[in-house]
Amino acid sequence: MATVMEKELIINKKWCKGCGICVNFCPKDVLELKNGIVNVKDESSCIKCGLCELRCPDYAIYLGGLEDGEE
């Protein structure tokens, strides 16, 4: 099983509506809105807290890992 830090941020751009909730509630300022869609600005400072995943109303951003069966 992958540890938390091995997980990576995955964005489903088709589902993002650009509300900006994840951008404003990210504690490390990792995310930004680019052309109205969420974009990872600075992945190196991400602490994988998962708050973006918890607060995204459109299920467009999440922490994925190998055991999650990502394509």
Partner: peptide
């Protein structure tokens, strides 16, 4: 929401949902 959970409990062909950008209902459904 992780892909695993979404695939387990959602009708994936019905998403994305019709709620407005920033609507809290998506968070509550999760």
């Amino acid at each position: 929401m992780s892909n695993k959970l979404a695939k387990k409990y959602f009708r994936m062909d019905k998403l994305p949902h019709i709620w407005c950008p920033g609507c809290g209902h998506g968070i509550l459904m999760r």
